[in-house]
Design a protein around this nucleic acid. Structure first.
Length: 103
DNA sequence: AACCTGACTTCGG
DNA sequence: TCCGAAGCCAGGT
């Protein structure tokens, strides 16, 4: 397993409740700003296995990437439980909910 | 090793 | 903001 993949998983685990992160952002923090797609693979491969908060990962438009009936409902529900607000088009206000670690 | 795939992103119009 | 096209990456076959 590449170090990058390890990092991605660690980072996702650090996303605080009530916040969200984009694929690209995570990839960037893990070392490869272009590996957004790889982040997706990781979620597929070990989100369940490693107990990762996969629902806190969304695309850059601030919306859920999952197609309806394939996890979309669940993800939206989980986020709402954590206090994340959705707009008219199921969009999240990134200015307000995007995870911005200070470090 | 080549080829395919995916919950992406950026750019131009 | 929306649409299409082109990039980009690691894993699995």
């Amino acid at each position: 397993m590449e170090l990058f993949s390890i990092q991605v998983k660690n980072i996702i685990k650090q996303i605080p409740v009530g916040k969200v992160a984009t694929y690209g952002q995570i990839a960037s923090m893990a070392g490869n700003y272009r590996a957004a797609r790889q982040v997706v693979r990781l979620l597929h491969s070990s989100s369940q296995k490693d107990n990762l908060p996969w629902h806190r990962v969304i695309n850059k438009k601030g919306e859920i990437s999952l197609p309806p009936g394939c996890g979309f409902e669940e993800q939206k529900h989980l986020l709402q439980q954590e206090g994340v607000i959705f707009g008219k088009k199921n969009r999240i206000n990134l200015e307000r909910f995007l995870w911005q670690p200070v470090d």
